[in-house]
Design a protein around this nucleic acid. Structure first.
Length: 321
DNA sequence: AATGCGGGGAT
DNA sequence: ATCCCAGCATT
């Protein structure tokens, strides 16, 4: 077994003495895994250079736009976020325009993306950036993590994709690729993060993590991986082991499959979408939410208010002004 | 560790 | 039908 950082091939920056990494006291913790093939980095970066997905947030390094894209991409496929990203950044081109908008305007622009609380959080984050950070998206992990809706992944994504820092954001793609292709076994959160940070070739934070995500989206997929055409097949730890999928059901996954139609989430979504068209009188809530029970409709409305997604005004429910 | 939170795409 | 998706906050 080897320790990450022994010899990762040309372009790698990690020294055995423990480079100062950006994510706190776990930074120098060695992750013990199978040896990393020295060619992995070059092969993956070469493949990325030739096969990169053309996604709109890859055409900018504007930290505000990167932040918007990363919030949109939380639990949302890149292909769908791409459409909304163009419209949203056209409507709100700068962090100050977003901060100056109403929650209602932002929620309306969020239509179709789901997880509407993300829009409220992004709006609050924009105001925080303007008021507490002089309009500049923070450039360090701690300040980014303090923004609403920004967690371990999103904070590092901003650092890597906007500021070019050598940190490794771990999303579902990266976690799966690292478990399979590099470690050859399931990794817990801390291990995956440590490994992801350690693997970033010096000065290539943007391209490297983009490449890992593309590999996860195009070849190393969750459902049916396309190993035959995978660019890193020859260095893949899972391939060499020939064993069970290291990213299998017991790994990171924690989904609870419940039917969506008829769920509270469905009706919440219907109600918010109705509010996008304008205020809804209390008597019309049930119809707007597509429920028959008025008590249930009132409960849904109450929760929307509690979540900052709606407010009462003269007997009507509306998006927050 | 579990749960709530949307909606659409892929198989 | 079911799984999955560039996750986060709360309990």
């Amino acid at each position: 077994m080897g320790v990450v950082g022994v010899d990762l091939g040309k372009g790698y920056s990690l020294g055995g003495e423990g480079k100062q990494l950006a994510h706190g006291r776990d930074a120098t913790l060695p992750v013990v895994v199978a040896p990393v093939h020295p060619w992995l980095g070059d092969v993956l970066l070469d493949w990325y250079g030739a096969q990169a997905r053309d996604l709109p947030w890859r055409r900018t390094r504007d930290p505000y736009r990167i932040l918007v894209s990363e919030i949109m991409l939380q639990q949302t496929q890149a292909s769908r976020a791409a459409v909304a990203f163009a419209e949203f950044t056209s409507r709100f081109p700068t962090v100050r325009t977003l901060a100056g908008a109403s929650v209602a305007e932002v929620l309306t622009a969020w239509r179709g993306l789901g997880y509407n609380r993300r829009a409220v959080g992004l709006h609050k984050a924009a105001r925080s950036i303007v008021e507490e950070h002089a309009g500049v998206v923070p450039q360090n992990l701690t300040a980014l993590r303090a923004l609403p809706g920004v967690g371990d992944y999103t904070a590092r994504a901003v650092l890597a994709f906007a500021y070019g820092q050598d940190v490794g954001p771990v999303d579902t793609n990266v976690a799966r690729v690292l478990s399979r292709a590099v470690a050859g076994r399931a990794l817990n959160r801390r291990e995956a993060q440590s490994l992801a940070d350690a693997l970033v070739p010096e000065g290539q934070g943007h391209a490297w993590s983009s490449a890992l995500m593309d590999l996860g989206a195009r070849h190393c997929t969750a459902r049916r991986p396309a190993c035959d055409s995978c660019p890193v097949l020859r260095t893949c730890a899972w391939q060499r082991s020939g064993g069970e999928d290291p990213a299998g059901a017991t790994a990171v996954r924690a989904r609870s499959p419940s039917p969506f139609a008829g769920s509270d989430r469905y009706h919440r979504g219907r109600l918010v979408d109705a509010l996008r068209a304008g205020p809804v009188a209390a008597a019309d809530l049930a119809t707007a939410a597509r429920v028959t029970d008025r008590v249930k409709a009132a409960a849904l409305a109450q929760r929307l208010v509690a979540d900052g997604l709606a407010e009462w005004d003269a007997g009507s429910l509306r998006l927050p002004t």
